[in-house]
Amino acid sequence: MSQAIDNAHNDHHEPSMTVKTIWLVFWILLGITVLDFVIYFMMPKSGFRNFIFIGFGVVKSYFIVGFFMHMRYEKVRLMAMIILPMAFVLGLIAALLYEGGVWSLTKWME
């Protein structure tokens, strides 16, 4: 059993992160955060701006999960097991935001 664990441990190390990649990802994340900052002050508040911020958040999470958490170098089954269930969250977001909008029209009527 411990032999098997050691094998599993050694298997996935061939394609790994180099120090250069790590710093590149850092600069990308920092760049996106700075861009967040710039857009916040340059663009008037709007739904489109919120959309940009959420899009940037998704891009940042791609770099954090993919590179820092090493997900890009893992087996596809592991990626699927961890990432696909997050689809439930999309359902939750759709349902609760819709409900919130409906409540905002009905709750304050009286």
């Binding site: 939750l92 935001l97 905002s104 029209l105």
Partner: peptide, 19 residues
């Protein structure tokens, strides 16, 4: 996700003109 979605829900709730 649940906590952040609850935040979104409450925010939408306060978004109407009659709030």
């Amino acid at each position: 996700s649940s906590l952040l979605t609850a935040y979104g829900c409450q925010r939408f709730l306060a978004s109407s003109d009659t709030a």
